[in-house]
C-alpha cells in the first residue's frame, strides 16, 4: 500500500521538524498520566499501609460490616455480570444478525446507561420502586423489597453495566459474519446447537473481554448503588459505599480501614487491566482470523479504509 506509506512518511517528516513540540507533548502526556493516575494509585496503597501490615489486615477483617461489604460486592457483581451476559449475547445477536424495525433505536438504547449519570440512574430506580413511585405502594403492600435491599443493588448495578457485553460483542459478531452459522443450519443443526458449537466458540474472547470490563465496573459502582442502597451497615453497603462511609469518619482507624478497602478495589482494577490487555490481543486475533477466512469480504473492507484515509 504505497498510499498509506506516503502518508506515514509525511507525518514523520512534519514531526521531525519540530522536536520541541514533540517533547512538549510527551512531557505533557507523562505529566497528566502521572498526576491523574499514577500518583493517586500509589497514594491509595501508601495510605493503606501507612500504619503497617497488621493494621491493614485487622481493618479489613476485624470489622463485621467491612467483611459483609466485601461479601455483598462478591454477590452483586457476578449476578449483574451473568444478567448482562444473557442480555448482551441476545442483543448482539439480534443486532448483528437481523434487520428489523427499531434496530437503530435498540443500539442507541443499549448505550443509554453510558450517557446517564449513575446517580440519575439510581434516582430513576427509586422513582419507580420507591414508596412515592409508581410501583412502591404495591410492592410494600405485598411486602416485596426492591430498593434499599439486595434486588435494588443488583438492578442498579446491572443497569449501569448494561452496555459492556453487548457493545463488545456487536462488532465481533458483525466481523465474523453469518456464514458459519448458515452452514451449520444447512447441515441440520438446531438453533441451540448452532449457538453452542458455532457462535459461542467464535465470540469467546470478545465475550470474556466484555465480562471483565463489566465486572470491574460492577464492583466499583458507587453513584447508582448509593442512591438505592439506603446505606444500611452490614446489609446494603457494598465495598465502594463502605470505603466512603469509613472515610466520612474522623477517627484514624476508620481512615486506615477506608484506604485498606480502597486498595483492594484498586488491586482488582489492576488485575482487570492485566486481563483486559491479554484479552484485547486475543480479540484482535479473533477479528483478524474472521477477516482472513472471509476472503470475499476482506478486500473491499481494506480498500475502503485506505480510500477514506487518503
Amino acid at each position: 500500500m504505497p498510499d498509506s506509506q506516503l502518508i506515514a512518511a509525511r507525518h514523520v517528516s512534519t514531526r521531525v521538524d519540530h522536536p520541541a513540540v514533540r517533547w512538549m507533548l510527551i512531557v505533557l502526556a507523562v505529566l497528566v498520566v502521572g498526576v491523574l493516575i499514577i500518583v493517586p494509585v500509589i497514594n491509595v496503597f501508601a495510605q493503606a499501609f501507612s500504619a503497617g501490615w497488621t493494621t491493614y489486615w485487622t481493618s479489613l477483617l476485624a470489622d463485621a460490616d467491612t467483611r459483609h461489604s466485601i461479601l455483598l460486592t462478591l454477590i452483586v457483581a457476578p449476578i449483574s455480570v451473568a444478567a448482562n451476559v444473557v442480555f448482551g449475547v441476545a442483543a448482539a445477536w439480534a443486532i448483528a444478525r437481523f434487520r428489523f424495525p427499531g434496530r437503530t433505536l435498540l443500539t442507541t438504547l443499549i448505550d443509554l446507561p453510558f450517557a446517564i449519570s449513575p446517580v440519575v440512574a439510581g434516582l430513576l430506580i427509586v422513582l419507580i420502586f420507591g414508596l412515592q413511585g409508581y410501583l412502591g405502594p404495591w410492592l410494600r403492600e405485598h411486602d416485596i423489597k426492591v430498593i434499599f435491599a439486595l434486588p435494588g443493588l443488583i438492578l442498579a448495578t446491572t443497569f449501569v453495566t448494561l452496555p459492556f457485553v453487548a457493545r463488545e460483542l456487536i462488532p465481533v459478531m458483525e466481523a465474523i459474519g453469518p456464514e458459519e452459522e448458515v452452514a451449520a443450519v444447512s447441515l441440520g443443526a438446531n438453533a441451540w446447537q448452532t449457538f453452542w458449537h458455532v457462535t459461542l466458540p467464535n465470540i469467546k474472547w470478545g465475550l470474556l473481554y466484555g465480562v471483565v470490563l463489566c465486572n470491574a465496573r460492577a464492583m466499583g459502582e458507587f453513584g447508582a448503588v448509593y442512591v438505592v442502597s439506603g446505606r444500611i451497615d452490614g446489609l446494603t453497603c457494598t465495598m465502594p459505599l463502605r470505603v466512603e462511609k469509613l472515610f466520612q469518619q474522623l477517627r484514624h482507624d476508620d481512615m486506615a480501614g477506608s484506604f485498606a478497602l480502597a486498595s483492594i478495589l484498586t488491586l482488582l482494577a489492576l488485575v482487570t487491566l492485566a486481563a483486559k490487555v491479554s484479552l484485547e490481543r486475543k480479540t484482535r486475533g479473533e477479528l483478524a482470523e474472521a477477516a482472513a477466512t472471509k476472503i470475499v469480504g476482506a478486500e473491499p473492507l481494506v480498500a475502503e479504509t485506505v480510500g477514506t484515509s487518503a
Binding site: V126, F129, G130, L131, Q132, G133, G136, R140, I147, F148, G230, R231, I232, D233, G234, L235, K245, Q248
Partner: peptide, 19 residues
Amino acid sequence: RQSHGGSSSQARSVIDGLP
C-alpha cells in the same frame, strides 16, 4: 441496624421507603 449519610438525603430515603 444503622444507616448513615447526609441528613437530608437520609430523610429523602426514608420518604422513598427506607424502612
